[in-house]
Design a protein around this nucleic acid. Structure first.
Lengths: 152, 152
DNA sequence: TTCCAGATAAGAATTTTTCTTATGTAAGAA
DNA sequence: TTCTTACATAAGAAAAATTCTTATCTGGAA
């Protein structure tokens, strides 16, 4: 995950015409630090509270929402009852493990390319597509081990 | 959408080793009737309450959960905060329209086939895939009109 | 610096979901 | 058919997740 310093984070916010407040910076920093973890607002709040005692949960909700609207983070589709966020806005899919309840990042350039190509050719009437996302649902055979792919 | 009578619904439940209670039958019936609508528990409840005054919201939640566990309905991944359900368990994708906030069923056999083939060939280590799902996010150009595809 | 549109804190309020417990009922057994 | 019991439901409390309200504060433009 890209390791940005505060000044760079500040830049990133400003480039989205967002005020670079301290709260927004630490929330963004936390999300980047939690690469692959897809936290809910509550988790981000719990993480930040010790070092930022004045931060409020409502603010974290608002900030995540604003970030999502501005494309700084992705909302992760979730079968669970709560919203999750992902600072990785690159094209990637998610794996839902029924065993461990994890949401796992799954980067498969071939898959992305395949779909990219498909949708470029596919003629959709009355629809302007912004993005697509795939989820795989299943089980990790070894819960402790990672999921990986071998080339075709 | 398949138009099943009560007796057939009863059969369907029993075939999943679920007791065919009146509540389950009307919930299932409602879901089938709302083809393409992807309701949340609350919506199903509101719909059923007039004709079934004794039904309880908690029961609807439980029933939808049981149905999902038994493959009678699909949980629809949603960016929104609440769980949605879909009685159409055939392979299909969902389109999220940012304008209208709709979730639209999108059947594209070629796409399903393409992915089916891809995942059959793709070797995934330590993962047993049960299903995959795609969402397209974007905007309907004409909010009132339908989205459709033209063959390649 | 000053100023102010927009951001935050705090906590109330609302919405969504789960849980608990007493009661009810479907469906198999007698 | 009636009995039995394991499972399902109703009701509402409780918990969890999210939004809203309002007073206060602050980043950054002028």
């Amino acid at each position: 995950m890209q390791q940005l310093n505060r000044q760079e984070l500040r830049q990133k916010l400003v480039s989205c015409s967002l005020k670079a407040t301290h709260q927004r910076i630490v929330v963004y920093e936390a999300l980047l630090g939690l690469h692959g973890h897809h936290p809910a607002a509550e988790e981000v709040y719990r993480l930040l509270k010790p070092a930022n005692p004045s931060i409020s949960l409502g603010t974290v909700y608002k900030i995540l929402d604003v970030f999502a609207e501005n494309g700084l983070v992705r909302r992760v589709f979730s079968e669970q009852g709560c919203k999750r966020y992902d600072a990785n806005t690159m094209a990637h899919s998610h794996i839902y493990c029924s065993n461990t309840r994890e949401i796992i990042d799954f980067e498969d350039p071939e898959l992305e390319e395949l779909l990219q190509g498909f949708f470029q050719r596919r003629n959709m009437q009355n629809f302007e597509m912004h993005s697509f996302a795939i989820q795989l649902t299943g089980n990790k055979k070894e819960p402790d081990q990672q999921v990986s792919i071998t080339k075709l």
